[in-house]
Structure formats: structure tokens, C-alpha cells
Design a protein around this nucleic acid. Structure first.
Length: 672
DNA sequence: GCAAGGTC
């Protein structure tokens, strides 16, 4: 709002002789949808509260009133807006121009909540400069008929779609329980499930990885540079599965001198400005938790030390660039960067955009006096954050990194080649080293040095990398899921609190019990596919353009649920086969009272000419189909079971008519 | 118990 006060000349006033205005502000979503069971009639409350029966799914979105309630703690803001609007003739919803319609949604939520019956206008600003704000004010549009406004409807559709996806958590829970598992909760949704699925797939690949070593002759020069041949598995025969082959091959080679083919000077421009996800990676590497990073960054933003956190922008406008330019020496001084490196005071085009609401994450207009002062106010983590943000920004003002690319081959064996990159001028890399953000390992480079000698090199098929924070954030970025901030936020949410699905272990995420159960259950489902977000966004775009009825988007959740339910069901039968889950399940038992409980599932069949049913599980052991058939035939079988004290034991027995508390039943009778 | 979106 401060930017509007500056642009329009006060908190109240007259806009260009056209109308009087009063400025007031909101704060994120002031309202949220009620719980499913709160949105339906009394006769349907049982159905929409239930976590017990599959017969209640899929939900019918037509049963919902889609009523909203005030977010706890936001009543004050709502009242302020209501009071400010009291004597006005119209309300202008003013937010940045974001394609998802979220600004329209949260604006309309407020307008509806205060029962506003007069005119509503909409403006969208490109950035928060006075020029852009005034330009936006001049392009006010009347949106009073909200059900005709595409941006509102697309966001409404998204919101309802996401809420309806809740039911998949209940469905997963029911299938989990039927299979004998007791997760505390399931958290299935298009974002969380995409991440959980990614972690699951990566870790499964790692578990299934079988190292296949190979051996071949390579050369090493006096500085350790390696010369090797290009390998084509269809043609070439110089790679051996056993070391002996390569050792024999070694006899065919002798030391050789090096011929340099090419020396070229190359330049590399500074990397794009960091987003909050990357800040999370870099600061997280120093041992701080994502949640702390997000919170501290938010606090620093409110103190204007850094710019707006939840930006979608990766560049800045020329105005934003020029605004910060007079402060760069001061910023450099605070973080101990030599101002002399900041040569490019005119921006490179790659960092500049015509349109940016908030601009990329960067230092704010208030420069801290010193790192000590920063630490006093925001802790050591604040210092780390500021350093990352400031260095990334200042690097943009430095000259390109210059290196010499050299290519060489061996004089005696021209097929053996090598290439190196020799740093010549570090320039921006003296300020900000982007190595930590890329997956490539940088090797210290040395000049080629004669002679190169042959040796037997041992390689292997590459082991899949762990699902690191970097890997997950890059994956989400690639699939256009969320902004840098929401990506980091979701990742933080997934690995903390009571609904925790995963945890960070030695740099990689591993799923815990709940995460593993839901990953297996939702494997191959639509809700867990990263494509679902793209499909949703495409649909929203069509709603915005009035090509699609917005109600069809929430309605499509019925199709998704119908499609996914049988997948969950099939997947629930293989929970028992997942070794990682079995390990987690045994830990889960010791931690909580709830555990892999004996399933009460019954099996039926003919026994002694009589149609009977009996429990499929005994002592934690679930009879296989073969065992069930054997039991029905009267055969004695031997099973492994869990004793009351938890020990694994073996026992033989057969099916028999028994009685318990005066009630007769058929069941497995052990022969102790 | 369950989503994803927003954060003066």
C-alpha cells in the first residue's frame, strides 16, 4: 500500500480530478473454504465427514455450498476494509497482474464477505512504481458482475478442484487400513504427491541399483588430466567387464606426448538472480531449516532489507535496477565485496524485463549498517541470507568470467582426447560462485603436461543421485509447479510437523512411514502425476478466456477419483511386498501404539462341503491365495507369525471349527 | 485426520 500512497499522493485524496479515494490494504487470503462437512446439508454430513467407507466416493461437488469462513486472526483486517469502504461508491481491487487469478479471488472473497452491493472495479499493476500504478489506475475496468469475470472464475475453479482433492487422502487411508496399515494421516494432493512420488522413485532406483563395473585403458598426463576414447557400446570393444581384459589391453600402449589442438578464450556471464528455492539450497547447506529461512526472509522483507519473497520474477525492471544502483557500493561494503569488481553499472539485457510486479529476489532499499547489526536483529541465518541475496545481485554487476578452453589428443593414439577449462579472469566468480547451484562437479583445472601414461581405469554404470533439495526444487521448476517460494514452502511442509511425510537424511530426502504408504498407494495415479498441475493450469487458462465453464474443473475431480480409486486398491495389495515399507512399519510399531494391525478381511470358500468364511490374517500373517486353498482342502500348513510379545515364530496348523465366548467360528487352529 | 493458495 505504501507504493500507492506515494504514487497517488496520500492515503486519501482525489485521483486526477475524477474521483475521491481512500486507500486500505489486505493481507493474503482473509477467507478460506469451510470444511467439506460444513459445506453440505444436514442429511449429507455423515457422508462428507467419513473416513470409513469407500461408498461415499467420489464426492459430488454439487452437494457443496462452497461457503467460506474467515481465516483465524484476519477478522481485524476484514473490519478495517469494511469500515474504509462504508461511505464509498465503489471498490477497486488492486493487485499485481498474475495469470492465475489469485488476486481476483482473494479480492472478491473480501468484497463478498462484507456484503458489498455497489460497483467493483479492477486494476492490475505491472510493477509498484508510481508510473505503473497511475497507468493501472487509468485502465480501471468494471467487474461488478463477478460470475462474468474470467480471472475470478479460473481461480475459483482451482480452489474448488484442490479442496475436492482432499477426498483422495481419505480414500488412501481406507485402503491402507484395509491392507492392515495404520498411518497417522495421509496427505494426498497434486503438489505434495508429486514431490513424494519423486522421492519414492529416486530412492527405489537407488535401492534397485546394481553396480556394473567396467575397465578400460585411459591415459593420465603429469598434471592428472585424463585422456580417453569415445565409447560406442555397439561398435567399440575396448571396454571390459573384467579387469583382466583391460590389463591385457594395456600391453598395447606406451606413454605418449600430447598435441594441443585448440586454445580458445571463452566467457561466461553471471548466473540469473537467485530465487527463494535457491536461497534455500545455499543457506540450507549451512545447516539451517527451510522453515527458518522462509520466516527470516519474510522478517527481513518487512524490514525492507530484502525484496518481496514470493515473487515469480527472475529478472528486474530497469526502474528496479536503477533504484538499487546508488546503493550497490554500500551493499558491497557491508558484505565485504570489493567495489572495484562492480564495473557494469549499465545492466546486461538478460537481467532486465519490461514487466515485473515485484522483481527478482534481491537486496532491499534499506542497507544494513554491518553484518553485526544484521546478526543482532535476524541472527546468523539472517547474515547468511543477506550474503547470498546480495552476492547474487552484485555478481550481475561484475565482468564475465573468462576461461581458456583447450582441446588435445595423444600424438601416438589420436583417438584419446581430453579437454580442459583454465580460469583466466575470475571476475563475477570472485563475488558469487554458482557452482553450488549446479549438479556438475567442478574439477580443479591444470595445464596439459607431457607425457601421458596409460593405466587401467575402473568405471561403473552411474548410480542414481539422491533426491536432494536441489533435485526436487529443479524438478518442480521444470514442471512449472509453484514459485521459488511455494516450492521451498511445500518442501518444508512435507518434512515437518505432525503430517511429516519425509525427512532429510545425509543430503537426500527419504520417506517416512506415512510418506512411503501414500507413495506406494498413489503410484501411477493421476493426482500424483506432475502433469495434473499443467492440465489444471491449461483448463484455468481456458476458463479465463471464456472457452470453458469453470464448474467443469471441479467436476473433473470425479473423473480423477474414479480413475485413481482402482489404482489405489491395486497398489494396496503390494504394500506387503515393499521391503522399505516393512522396515519402516516395524519402527512405526515401536514408536506408536497404532501399527500394522491384523486385517479383519475375510476369505470365503467351501470347507467340508459347507460354505464358510474365516479371517485371512492370523498372528499378523496374511494367508496367501495358495494357503487359503490348502486350508480349505483341510491341509496342514506352516506359517511365520508374530507372537503376542512381538517375536517372529513359526507354527503349523489347519483350518478348524472353534469357539470363542460361546460363539463358534472357522479359523486357523495352530498345533502348539 | 485431508489441499493449495495467499502473506501490510
Amino acid at each position: 500500500m505504501d507504493d500507492f500512497v506515494v504514487a497517488l499522493g496520500g492515503k486519501t485524496g482525489n485521483f486526477q480530478g475524477q474521483f475521491d479515494y481512500v486507500l486500505t490494504h489486505s493481507y493474503g487470503h482473509i477467507l478460506q473454504l469451510k470444511e467439506p462437512q460444513e459445506m453440505v446439508g444436514d442429511d449429507k454430513k455423515t457422508r462428507y465427514s467419513s473416513w470409513r467407507s469407500l461408498k461415499y466416493f467420489p464426492w459430488d461437488e454439487k452437494d457443496f455450498s462452497w461457503a467460506k469462513k474467515i481465516v483465524p486472526g484476519r477478522m481485524k483486517t476484514l473490519k478495517e476494509i469494511r469500515d474504509a469502504a462504508k461511505d464509498c461508491d465503489g471498490i477497486i481491487i488492486a493487485t499485481d497482474d498474475d495469470p492465475s487469478g489469485e488476486g481476483d479471488l482473494l479480492g472478491w472473497e473480501i468484497v463478498n464477505a462484507i456484503h458489498w452491493k455497489k460497483v467493483v472495479y479492477r486494476i492490475r499493476f505491472e510493477d509498484q512504481s508510481p508510473k505503473s500504478i497511475i497507468a493501472a489506475m487509468r485502465q480501471m475496468t468494471d467487474v461488478t458482475n463477478q460470475m462474468e469475470q474470467g480471472e475470478y472464475l479460473e481461480a475459483l475453479a482451482r480452489q474448488r478442484f484442490d479442496l475436492l482433492s482432499m477426498q483422495l487422502s481419505r480414500i488412501a487411508m481406507i485402503y491402507a487400513k484395509k491392507a492392515g496399515y495404520r498411518p497417522k494421516t495421509m496427505r494426498i494432493g497434486r503438489l505434495k504427491s508429486a514431490i513424494v512420488g519423486l522421492i519414492f522413485d529416486r530412492n527405489t532406483e537407488i535401492e534397485n541399483y546394481v553396480k556394473k563395473p567396467y575397465f578400460e585403458v585411459k591415459f593420465k598426463d603429469q598434471n592428472g588430466n585424463i585422456f580417453s576414447r569415445k565409447f560406442d557400446p555397439d561398435k567399440d570393444k575396448f571396454r571390459f567387464a573384467e579387469i583382466k581384459g583391460a590389463k591385457d589391453d594395456l600391453a598395447n600402449f606406451a606413454s605418449s606426448s600430447i598435441v594441443i589442438d585448440e586454445k580458445k578464450l571463452k566467457k561466461q556471464t553471471p548466473p540469473p538472480l537467485v530465487d527463494l528455492g535457491q536461497i534455500g539450497i545455499l543457506v540450507g547447506a549451512k545447516g539451517y531449516k527451510d522453515k527458518e529461512i522462509i520466516k527470516t526472509y519474510q522478517d527481513m522483507y518487512q524490514a525492507q532489507i530484502v525484496s518481496y519473497p514470493r515473487t515469480e520474477d527472475t529478472q528486474v525492471t530497469l526502474e528496479q535496477f536503477n533504484e538499487l544502483l546508488p546503493l550497490v557500493d554500500q551493499i558491497a561494503n557491508v558484505i565485504g565485496v570489493d567495489s572495484k569488481l562492480l564495473i557494469r553499472r549499465k545492466p546486461r539485457l538478460k537481467f532486465i524485463t519490461k514487466q515485473a510486479a515485484h522483481g527478482a529476489n534481491r537486496p532491499g532499499l534499506k542497507v544494513p549498517k554491518s553484518l553485526e547489526q544484521l546478526e543482532k536483529r535476524f541472527g546468523k541465518i539472517g547474515v547468511e541470507i543477506y550474503q547470498v541475496v546480495a552476492k547474487s545481485y552484485l555478481a550481475m554487476l561484475a565482468e564475465d568470467y573468462v576461461y581458456e578452453a583447450q582441446k588435445a589428443h595423444l600424438a601416438k593414439y589420436p583417438d584419446f582426447k581430453s579437454s580442459i577449462q583454465l580460469p583466466k579472469e575470475m571476475n563475477y566468480k570472485l563475488i558469487f560462485d554458482d557452482r553450488d547451484l549446479s549438479d556438475e562437479e567442478e574439477i580443479e583445472a591444470h595445464e596439459f603436461k607431457d607425457p601421458a601414461a596409460p593405466f587401467v581405469y575402473e568405471g561403473a554404470n552411474p548410480k542414481p543421485g539422491k533426491p536432494t533439495k536441489k533435485f526436487i526444487l529443479n524438478f518442480l521448476k521444470k514442471h512449472n509447479i509453484g514459485t521459488g517460494a511455494t516450492r521451498l514452502q511445500t518442501l518444508a511442509e512435507i518434512s515437518s510437523g505432525k503430517g511429516s511425510l519425509a525427512s532429510l537424511y545425509r543430503g537426500g530426502y527419504i520417506l517416512n512411514y506415512e510418506g512411503q504408504v501414500q507413495a506406494i498407494l498413489s503410484k501411477g495415479s493421476m493426482i500424483a502425476s506432475p502433469k495434473i498441475t499443467k492440465r489444471l493450469f491449461d483448463g484455468m487458462d481456458r476458463v479465463k478466456r471464456k472457452e470453458l465453464d469453470y464448474q467443469l474443473i471441479p467436476q473433473s475431480m470425479q473423473t480423477i477419483v474414479r480413475h485413481d480409486m482402482p489404482i489405489f486398491e491395486t497398489n494396496s495389495t503390494i504394500l506387503d511386498q515393499n521391503a522399505t515399507l516393512q522396515k519402516l512399519a516395524s519402527k512405526h510399531q515401536t514408536k506408536t501404539v497404532s501399527k500394522k494391525v491384523a486385517s479383519k478381511d475375510k476369505v470365503t470358500g467351501k470347507f467340508n462341503g459347507e460354505e464358510i468364511s474365516f479371517n485371512q490374517t492370523w498372528g499378523g500373517h496374511k494367508f496367501t491365495q495358495q494357503e487359503v486353498a490348502d486350508l480349505l482342502e483341510g491341509k496342514t500348513i506352516t506359517i511365520n507369525y508374530r507372537s503376542k510379545r512381538g517375536a517372529q515364530k513359526s507354527v503349523s496348523g489347519k483350518l478348524a471349527k472353534q469357539s470363542y465366548k460361546g460363539r463358534s467360528f472357522y479359523g486357523f487352529k495352530p498345533e502348539f
